[in-house]
Design a binder for these strands. Structure first.
Lengths: 212, 212
DNA sequence: GCATTCACGTACATACACGTCTGTATGCTA
DNA sequence: TAGCATACAGACGTGTATGTACGTGAATGC
């Protein structure tokens, strides 16, 4: 954060202070992500988050301004890693159908870690509320749904996806079914990947995918 | 509850006391069901539940022994109505595939009311916990999954469902995808029904259903 | 080398919600 | 109609979790 990350090139003196801070911050973030995924926002107890990370609430309140800020940071962090790990995979697919199926498979694999259901848990918890965390989650979710809707429209234009309900509704169901299936399977490799792909293909109105 | 439901056959004197009690009880149940679906168990505020039903916490604590008891009653009530409205529909289908698709469509329709996501919300909230409400929800969920697994096995035996991952995993994904899709669509009739059926068929490995 | 800043721990204040208790009005019974 | 039971409202006490203020030791800058 502060502009004190400057490090003289020749010196080997490690910036222990900054490193230390960064380590605790990521430890707290991971712990909070697990906690949010497991218990949701309201049930999340900050003392337990800190303990699980090996610190106390003092450290937490030093790194984050409060619970809200912590949750927002977690959401942002999860979103970032998701786009890096899954979104990238989607981009390098030849067509919209391949992209959507890759998204499903990638999401299943991404969710094998314990941070799986943080998005759906928070979205459910804040649905129809005005909490800033809920708004952020909603915003991220909308972005994903919109992207899926665009892919669906593209697939329909080139004939690879059959017609059906409005692309927006299909995209909503696509994301919902995908998340639901993956959460229900709770990282039961290797079936999670195939079943996620099946659910995704099904929502799109495609025939059962040949693979595996 | 009490054995005072006795009513002299000839007498027309309506048991207004019992009726009144029953009305408030169901009003509180409905309000609590909405609340649980919206906010989950931990975030559910009993005063708001009572207010939404037109009463105060006094009435609530008169009808139920506490929050836990209220939640259990809601879960039982939702489960009961679900089996009556959806489960019955499933039973009268000719084959396992028809039964599973009917289940999907029926669930979508059932969830058009605001009690949609009470099951998934509570399951998420209590996943990996030891709360009695969580145990009950888990038990109910397992029952449904087992039933789906049996239908899947039956369908595989008669060839109407292609092979794939273990029936148990498929059933888990089936229920999960179904719930996820329906919640995401949030009762957007009429597409919810079709898309639920599509997701269901997809998980089973069936080709896209012809209907609509 | 010393003052300062930073990372973190500890102790306190506050808020919120659950559960309990007591009060009151309305229906039931004799 | 008198007396009791029931349905419900309101007030109180308590536990718990958040946020804040303060204290400590180590690292950094002069």
């Amino acid at each position: 954060m502060s502009p004190s990350t400057i490090q003289a090139s020749g010196s080997r003196r490690r910036s222990t202070q900054a490193e230390r801070s960064a380590r605790t911050r990521t430890a707290l973030l991971q712990s909070a992500a697990r906690g949010l995924s497991r218990y949701g926002y309201g049930n999340l107890v900050l003392e337990q988050v800190a303990r699980d990370a090996g610190y106390t609430r003092g450290a937490l309140y030093h790194q984050f301004t409060g619970k809200k800020d912590l949750a927002l940071a977690v959401v942002e962090w999860v979103d970032e890693t998701w786009w890096r790990e899954v979104g990238g995979l989607v981009d390098q697919q030849p067509g919209p159908v391949a992209a959507l199926i890759a998204l499903a498979r990638g999401h299943a694999i991404y969710c094998r870690r314990d941070v799986a259901s943080v998005a759906m848990a928070l979205r459910l918890e804040f649905s129809g509320q005005d909490h800033p965390v809920g708004r952020e989650v909603e915003r991220i979710s909308k972005t994903l749904v919109k992207r899926c809707a665009r892919l669906i429209n593209a697939g329909r234009r080139d004939g690879s996806i059959p017609p059906g309900p409005p692309a927006k509704a299909v995209a909503l169901a696509f994301v919902g079914a995908l998340e639901g299936a993956v959460i229900a399977l709770a990282g039961q490799a290797p079936h999670d990947e195939l079943l996620a792909a099946r659910a995704a293909a099904g929502v799109l109105g495609l025939d059962s995918p040949a693979g595996t």
